[in-house]
Design a protein around this nucleic acid. Structure first.
Lengths: 119, 119
DNA sequence: TTGATCTGCAATGAAAGTGTTGCACTTTGC
DNA sequence: GCAAAGTGCAACACTTTCATTGCAGATCAA
């Protein structure tokens, strides 16, 4: 399964400035740190560091174009993380269904209160 | 639109231990910090703090049951974050389509290189 | 009431993240 | 070559996060 490999992606998306940057890139197309910086209340260097964090998480792509470096969105990684969330939610849904069924069968409160890890 | 309100959720999901905890809760049902702690290589207090972070992000629900406190998954918040990701990916897709269309019309490389924020 | 179990909270320290400034380097156009 | 524009990187301060230990308080069963 998709274990903890999505953690860096979520960590990267966990910063408001980085969210803003990736939204700007998704809507406006590829852009450089210098061109994005004026839209944020931080320095050009700080923006570049954020973009590198996003790139490191696999969410962005870097490529050189003349004297500037352009960042653009990598959709695959977005999809992967969305899938992880969906699987998590579905797992929880199955759990709820199983509990409901069990409750209907026995007529009493199910194993929700039970510890999954007794030692 | 869903702006930066999902940032705390992603930040909460950005830690491997917290991912592990929420997966355990989704699969095993509600549980307390004490019962979850033996499955992780950290102390009971550390686990409780992680669970509180997840709760603060809206991902978990706390309720008292006798002498223990049980945490369980709140599906709504998972869905909200998954939606945010999907919108982001879709936005990028639309952008790509527009570029492709523009390229077909003019017969040359489109605005991918252009800065969206000129100042 | 007593003892065992579980939670709540404070203090502490190590580590990582965020943002800044300053400067060097590369590329481009004249 | 020279200047302008853009990127790369290092040092620094500040804040936050992660995890620990220790102890107090609450709850339950006998």
């Amino acid at each position: 399964m998709t274990t903890a490999s999505t953690a860096p992606v979520f960590a990267a998306l966990g910063d408001p400035h980085r969210q803003q940057l990736i939204m700007m890139l998704a809507r406006g197309g590829a852009a450089s740190a210098s061109s994005l910086a004026p839209s944020l209340p931080v320095s050009r260097q700080a923006v570049d560091r954020h973009l590198r964090v996003l790139t490191g998480a696999g969410l962005l792509e870097r490529r050189r174009s003349g004297r500037q470096v352009l960042y653009s969105v990598r959709r695959a990684e977005l999809d992967r993380s969305a899938d992880w969330l969906r699987e998590l939610a579905d797992g929880w849904d199955k759990r709820l269904s199983a509990i409901k069924e069990s409750a209907e069968g026995t007529g009493q409160a199910p194993a929700l209160e039970k510890n999954p890890t007794d030692k």
